[in-house]
């Protein structure tokens, strides 16, 4: 099917979203919550575009990450109205997270040098993109969610402090685009979400590997014993080399 974006007729397949078609054709649309490995969420609203069905219908503003393509759609990605919407969103985010570089850069691109709202008194770097929440769900731990509304919106553990579902894998912290989630590894200890985990020692060299809870979680999902996940990759390779040496003969 054909969709028209910014005056260009573009070939699209039915399972694609408008954002995917635009990206594939080098049309830049800013996003914060989009992640290629996770389900689209439509939370940041920066990817909004103007869309008309069949050229005569009403002009609608839709998030392009959630909008499936339809034959004959006419789409504009950078109209004054769209740019104004994005600028307001970034203005709000700048009041929330003045220190997040990604927000500073995007805001500047949209002509927002300083927030026109009241800045938050105790700002953190969280931009509420929900990538951590969705990553945690993809891992299968489902330990995170969102809480609060408006300026009080935040990423949170259940009931604010229940980290019992967390396996300490660190996917949330490492996939956070602004580094808002703190994770510290000290020796065999890992601290994240207010909880202290013990990282299992590699059976060969003793170096800390993954957390006990993460190993048990992977074992549960794969059906393999938890010991299958405990060795560090260096020792695993060395074991492989010894296995090959036995095979080819000394």
């Amino acid at each position: 099917m054909i969709v028209n974006i910014n005056g260009r007729d573009l070939l699209a397949s039915p399972e694609e979203t408008l954002l995917q078609v635009a990206r594939r054709n080098g049309i830049p649309i800013p996003t914060l919550c989009e992640h290629a490995g996770l389900e689209p969420w439509g939370g940041c609203r920066l990817c909004v575009v103007e869309m008309t069905r069949g050229g005569t219908g009403p002009v609608r503003v839709v998030p392009s990450c959630l909008q499936p393509v339809e034959d004959g759609l006419r789409v504009e990605t950078h109209t004054p109205r769209i740019l104004r919407i994005r600028a307001v969103l970034l203005d709000l985010l700048l009041a929330r997270t003045p220190d997040a570089r990604r927000i500073q850069e995007l805001a500047l691109e949209h002509g927002v040098k300083r927030t026109s709202f009241v800045p938050r008194r105790d700002p953190d770097k969280c931009i509420l993109c929900n990538i951590c929440v969705r990553a945690c769900a993809a891992v299968g731990a489902d330990a995170l969610g969102t809480a609060g509304r408006g300026a009080a919106g935040r990423i949170s553990l259940p009931f604010g402090d229940d980290a019992s579902a967390c396996v300490g894998c660190g996917a949330c912290a490492l996939s956070c685009p602004t580094g808002a989630i703190e994770m510290t590894d000290r020796g065999s200890e890992r601290r994240i979400w207010g909880r202290t985990f013990q990282r299992l020692p590699c059976p060969s060299c003793g170096a800390p590997t993954l957390t006990r809870e993460h190993a048990a979680h992977l074992a549960g999902r794969s059906g393999l014993p938890a010991e299958s996940f405990g060795a560090c990759e260096r020792c695993r390779r060395e074991q492989a080399s010894r296995l090959f040496l036995d095979l080819v003969g000394k």
């Binding site: 992640h35 290629a36 490995g37 996770l38 990538i131 990553a135 993809a138 891992v139 894998c169 660190g170 996917a171 490492l174 996939s175 590997t209 993954l210 993460h214 190993a215 992977l218 794969s222 299958s228 996940f229 405990g230 060795a231 560090c232 990759e233 260096r234 020792c235 695993r236 390779r237 060395e238 074991q239 492989a240």
Partner: peptide, 28 residues
Amino acid sequence: VHEERCIRCRACVWACPWGNVGFDGVRT
């Protein structure tokens, strides 16, 4: 590795029986 799809849970690092998947802490 399709890096744009990766959520850095490193399950692959721990799962490879031969130790052939590594994690680059600098590039995360």
